[in-house]
């Protein structure tokens, strides 16, 4: 026999409230917090005029060069002092530069045991032929995780600032977009023809760069940027009606969220244990093969997805205020 609870009690539960908050059905502060409605600012013209009058009179008195001797002295002193400060800073920097070690010398402080360790043991430890990828996605995966999160947070910030929720009427997202692109050639057949040829090529090239991240120069960030550029070109050629068939806010949310979560879960073991001397359980495979080097390939795919989604989301938000 299932336990039945009343509708009201069910609605008051923590999980249900959380679900409502996530879906945007209910504002948790509404009804629980005192909110004073904002009034439109109405300037008092008389007071404003008096204020400006005062300001002007003070300005005239204070900055009158001919009568105010202290100000005249200050102006001259200020110029001389600025010049001296600039010269002092320039000379300090130049002296410092002359003490820098020569480029490429073997005794430079950057040539320490860390770089030697990366170069010597990189292939053995990570299984990636491209040492840079092995470094950023294995030794320093935590750093890359932070970078991906920075991209996600940047999109959230732009979403807060630029989002346009209005569906219809004056100031709606569609109307704003039309006003912004008022003079733009719409449905330009040359652009559409070229875009339909180039966009698949660009996106395939981006996928190639991502998947080959551990074998050749490239990786998640550059490949994701290429895919994002392809998506933006498609959007410019065919408009929002075509792109919204496969890329909406919901797609963005789920793709970014799942990519970041997978990254976090896949790398958590090393975040918590201090990173080194812990087997991931995934065999490294033969170096040089596509499926090799353990977790680096899936992590590259995650980073690429986040970067591509971020680029497209930035463009869509700045252009229309939603996507």
């Amino acid at each position: 026999m299932s336990k039945k609870i009343s509708e009201e009690e069910y609605r008051r539960r923590m999980l249900v409230r959380m679900k409502q908050w996530i879906n945007g059905e209910k504002d948790p502060y509404l009804g629980n917090m005192e909110i004073v409605p904002q009034h439109e600012y109405v300037p008092n013209k008389k007071k404003l005029r008096e204020y400006h009058k005062d300001l002007d009179s003070v300005h005239d008195k204070a900055y009158d060069v001919e009568h105010n001797r202290i100000y005249r002295f200050f102006m001259r002193f200020y110029r001389v002092a600025a010049l001296l400060c600039c010269l002092a800073l320039i000379s300090i920097l130049l002296v410092e530069v002359s003490y820098l070690p020569p480029v490429g010398s073997s005794h430079n402080p950057s040539n320490n045991e860390v770089a030697a360790k990366y170069i010597e043991d990189g292939l053995q430890d990570t299984g990636a032929v491209n040492i840079v990828t092995g470094m950023i996605l294995d030794y320093r995966a935590f750093d890359t995780f932070g970078e991906s999160n920075v991209l996600f947070i940047a999109t959230c910030t732009v979403l807060i600032l630029m989002r346009n929720d209005k569906k219809k009427g004056k100031g709606s997202a569609q109307e704003e977009e039309r006003r912004d692109s008022f003079y733009e050639p719409k449905n330009d057949s040359i652009l559409q023809m070229i875009a339909s040829v180039l966009v698949p090529v660009i996106i395939i090239f981006g996928i190639y760069v991502i998947l080959n991240g551990h074998l050749s120069p490239g990786g998640g960030f550059s490949g994701g940027a290429i895919i994002g550029a392809g998506l933006i070109l498609y959007l410019n050629a065919f408009g929002f009606e075509k792109t919204e068939r496969f890329f909406t806010e919901k797609t963005y949310k789920w793709v970014s969220f799942s990519a970041l979560t997978f990254y976090c879960l896949a790398k958590s073991y090393s975040f918590y244990t201090g990173a080194h001397h812990l087997e991931s359980g995934i065999p490294l495979g033969t170096p040089g093969a596509i499926i090799s080097s353990g977790l680096i390939l899936p992590l590259n795919i995650c980073v690429g997805l986040v970067v591509a989604c971020t680029m497209y989301a930035f463009f869509a938000l700045f252009r229309k205020g939603g996507f």
Partner: peptide, 9 residues
């Protein structure tokens, strides 16, 4: 392919 199209736009 791409450069003449951008000029055209």
């Amino acid at each position: 392919c791409s450069s003449p199209v951008s000029s055209h736009l």
